[in-house]
């Protein structure tokens, strides 16, 4: 599977992973600004954002129409479309591609929903192996506090489709703890670099930047 082999494209693929409210998007945004400021060619892509399917998926989520497997497949469609339309062409053209969530999000969430780990890994087998995969690790309580300061957790993000607990907050904790468990398993399997996301934004960014700088140097790109 392509996901397990180093790519030989001129660009660099950097992905951030973590549960909702881990601060990964903030970290990626700061990194992006920095890379652009120092004159790097950067492309950004995020989970469930393809023109092809993201609206269909959002509608289906609102109507609670999705089973664990169709949930998984629709996100795979979105990913496949962005991979071929955005990520691969940009890597071929030598861009630094910043991806907010990647196949590992599916491996964590879908397995937490009861989908077989081998099946979802096969489904995403065509994905390009990232040069760097950062995992922003945060306890579920912190995540809940950050995302639900002004709203209830949503149906699927709290795993309400699994009937874990009638209370969305309780359900969120149970479900996202399962997601965290899956992420932790992937640290070794896919060399995710774990960053303690309870540290300050600045502290995390300093570590993140340092790792990115080293990776780019390693790839022969001095910055």
């Amino acid at each position: 599977m392509r996901l397990n082999q180093n790519h030989d494209l001129p660009g660099t693929l950097i992905v951030v992973e973590g549960i909702d409210g881990s601060g990964k998007s903030t970290q990626l945004a700061i990194l992006r600004d920095w890379l652009q400021n120092i004159g790097q060619d950067v492309i950004f892509t995020e989970w469930n954002s393809s023109k092809l399917i993201s609206q269909t998926t959002k509608r289906a989520k609102k109507k609670n129409m999705l089973s664990p497997r169709t949930f998984s497949l629709l996100h795979a469609v979105d990913f496949a479309d962005r991979l071929e339309q955005v990520i691969v062409p940009a890597l071929k053209a030598g861009f630094i591609v910043l991806s907010d969530r990647y196949a590992f999000t599916a491996f964590a969430r879908d397995v937490a929903r009861g989908v077989q780990p081998e099946w979802v890994r096969n489904t995403y087998g065509f994905a390009i192996k990232p040069d760097l995969s950062m995992y922003f690790s945060v306890p579920v309580e912190v995540s809940l506090e950050r995302i639900c300061s002004n709203r209830q957790p949503k149906f699927y993000e709290s795993g309400m489709d699994l009937n874990l607990n009638p209370d969305p907050y309780e359900s969120y904790k149970i479900f996202q703890n399962r997601v965290i468990e899956e992420y932790d398993k992937m640290v070794d399997e896919y060399n995710l670099i774990k960053i303690d996301a309870t540290n300050t934004v600045h502290e995390q960014q300093v570590i993140f930047r340092d790792i990115v700088r080293k990776k780019l140097e390693e790839k022969g790109c001095s910055i």
Binding site: I53, R69, T70, L73, L74, A76, V77, A80, E84, F126
Partner: peptide
């Protein structure tokens, strides 16, 4: 505008 993987996954979603 469909590539092979996307094409395949769309139909798999429909089937499922």
């Amino acid at each position: 505008l469909l590539n092979a993987n996307t094409f395949s996954l769309l139909y798999a979603s429909d089937f499922t």
